[in-house]
């Protein structure tokens, strides 16, 4: 028992926080988009998948030229991928969601399912159904901390994730544009009357959310080493669960929800076994929706559109 407290407990917490930071990055985009246009962007998880495939292609070319890759190159690829996935997010919004701005919500949700399908099976057409091996794998030693193993790649990725989230937080909470985003989430009509170009702000929100999801995809590829066209499906659901747990539409809620979900999963699989992990996650979702649908930190969305 004592060993559990010192050894396993810390490991469980660390693993949970690590996976949780991926969830948080993807949940942020999900939550921001839902807050601003009340759309559950079903295709958001597939942006994460696109990020990993784009990085796969970029890294493959770089290694083709230079013969090798390293952490700085990965970071550069990360940046480029973020910009590209951000752009794809903006494109999707323009093409598939904006024409339906005034349609009933059911219609946009269905369209999002269509977009998700298109992305998944489009990638499948190009790359095939079998998983691809990521050309660059983060490697490093592990350190013993409090009875658990902590690896350098894990630390690196968590630092990157934390950095991204910190910058995002500054932008949304302090800047004029961030304020406009929050205003649209609360009352789109009134925000129009403040002189805000709502279309542009919505595009920007999609850019940021998609860039973060793409970043998470790159990091997942670099850490886990294997990517496939359906990897976005599950992560999309987990991201939504995380956003709900933390409080939908709430920036800090998405971050907290991601970490909390990671921890819950970590402990849940420890008790129930790995094959029940996703079932446990959805049970948490249903539990939260039943007991506290506004999430831990409370939701931040307009009551009426």
């Amino acid at each position: 028992m004592i060993e559990f407290i010192t050894g396993d407990l810390f490991q469980l917490i660390w693993n949970g926080l690590f996976v949780g930071s991926f969830y948080a990055l993807v949940a942020l985009g999900y939550s921001m988009v839902y807050g601003i246009i009340k759309l559950l962007n079903f295709a958001h998880g597939d942006i994460y998948m696109l990020g990993s495939f784009i990085a796969f292609v970029l890294l493959g070319s770089v290694i083709g030229f230079l013969g090798t890759a390293s952490l700085p190159i990965l970071l550069l690829v990360l940046l480029i991928t973020m910009i590209l996935t951000g752009g794809i997010g903006v494109l999707i919004e323009r093409v598939a969601y904006r024409p339906l701005r005034n349609s009933p919500r059911l219609a946009v949700l269905i369209t999002a399912v269509g977009v998700s399908f298109t992305l998944e099976y489009g990638v499948r057409q190009i790359f095939g159904p079998a998983p691809e091996v990521f050309p660059f794998r983060l490697s490093g030693e592990s350190v013993e901390v409090l009875g658990g193993r902590v690896s350098v790649p894990q630390i690196v990725l968590m630092v990157i994730a934390a950095l991204l989230m910190w910058v995002l937080q500054l932008y949304v909470m302090r800047s004029k544009e961030g304020r406009a985003m929050r205003a649209i989430a609360l009352d789109p009509r009134a925000t129009l009357l403040m002189g805000v170009n709502v279309n542009r702000v919505i595009s920007r929100t999609f850019f940021i959310g998609s860039a973060l999801a793409g970043a998470a995809g790159v990091m997942a590829g670099a850490y886990y080493g294997s990517i496939d066209f359906l990897m976005g499906f599950t992560i999309g659901l987990k991201a939504f669960t995380a956003a709900v747990i933390g409080g939908i539409g709430n920036l800090y809620g998405a971050m907290l929800g991601g970490l909390v979900l990671g921890l819950l999963e970590s402990f849940g699989t420890f008790v129930l076994g790995g094959e029940w992990r996703d079932v446990f996650t959805f049970a948490c979702l249903i539990l939260f929706l039943s007991i506290r649908p506004t999430g831990i930190l409370g939701a931040r969305i307009a009551e009426r559109m």
């Binding site: 304020r179 929050r182 205003a183 609360l186 009352d187 009509r189 009134a190 931040r300």
Partner: peptide
């Protein structure tokens, strides 16, 4: 109806 931003 005013429509101020309630959580700001």
């Amino acid at each position: 109806g005013r429509r101020i931003f309630s959580t700001m």
